[in-house]
Nucleic acid binder design. Structure first.
Lengths: 136, 136
DNA sequence: CTCGTGATTGACGCTTACGTAAACGTAAAG
DNA sequence: CTTTACGTTTACGTAAGCGTCAATCACGAG
């Protein structure tokens, strides 16, 4: 038997478990740590990932899907668990948010345009297919 | 005076004009040609860009904003001016469209999630700022 | 003719985001 | 004890997407 462990309290993950869950390689996860995006606990030399790390990995991958660079993703993700801090920090954060929001809205517009254009192409294809079928 | 040319019929552009309009470098435009994304006319050795090329450049840059690779962009952009062709081609195109649509809708969902989370962070920031102001 | 402007083709460099060994440690199972 | 599974660091390799010279034409103005 394969010794299917059902840990009493799995609020931590190994690097392999996280990799499997998000379908990335170990290399990728270690690389993100190298870039300061993840900071897992160390038990000896072994990495232990906590819920916080898991959430951040999800955010990182979503950022990637949106076409942000890892540097950009770093500033975005760090906004999520920023300490209250002083007024200057807060104002900086608010400005960052405004900037990112503008970018995201631009992207959404790009998506909507592309989707409607794809719909046109699709309609043309369907029409051409029908023409082919009728001329047979 | 700077000899502001107002050509009687500007349905073509130089590489510099296109670069200025889309705010990219000449190198970038030539690179896209190298990758088969643009195919300008040649007058001697000089590149002449027609409306078709201009449109394609716009599509390419939009694709980049959406985080697609140049290879992916190539297949997308080529769908736009695909010849009617035979049934197999049309079916292939329709499948491509389905795939791209799914990707785009995933991205839009990513964007919406990110936007609403940014709104939360923003609210927290504003609240913290108010707290700071009141405790002064 | 000469100069300035704008174009061309190499060709090498650089950053990002990992892939891919190589060489090694550790702990449980057989 | 040896194997197996899983983890580690170090380090070189690579593909994409341009940046950045350098050397060279072509042409209109003066």
């Amino acid at each position: 038997m394969h010794n299917v462990r059902v840990p009493a309290e799995t609020s931590t993950w190994s690097i392999a478990e996280l990799a499997a869950e998000y379908d990335v390689t170990l290399r990728t996860i270690r690389f993100y740590e190298d870039r300061g995006l993840l900071t897992p606990e160390r038990r000896g030399t072994v990495r232990i990932y906590h819920p916080r790390d898991r959430v951040r990995l999800g955010l990182i991958l979503r950022g990637k899907r949106l076409g942000f660079s890892l540097d950009e993703i770093a500033t975005i993700v760090d906004m999520y668990d920023a300490e209250p801090g002083e007024a200057g920090q807060l104002v900086y954060l608010l400005n960052q948010i405004t900037t990112r929001r503008a970018e995201l809205e631009q992207r959404r517009q790009d998506i909507d345009e592309t989707l409607s254009e794809l719909a046109e192409v699709e309609a043309r294809c369907q029409a051409d297919l029908n023409t082919l079928r009728n001329s047979r």
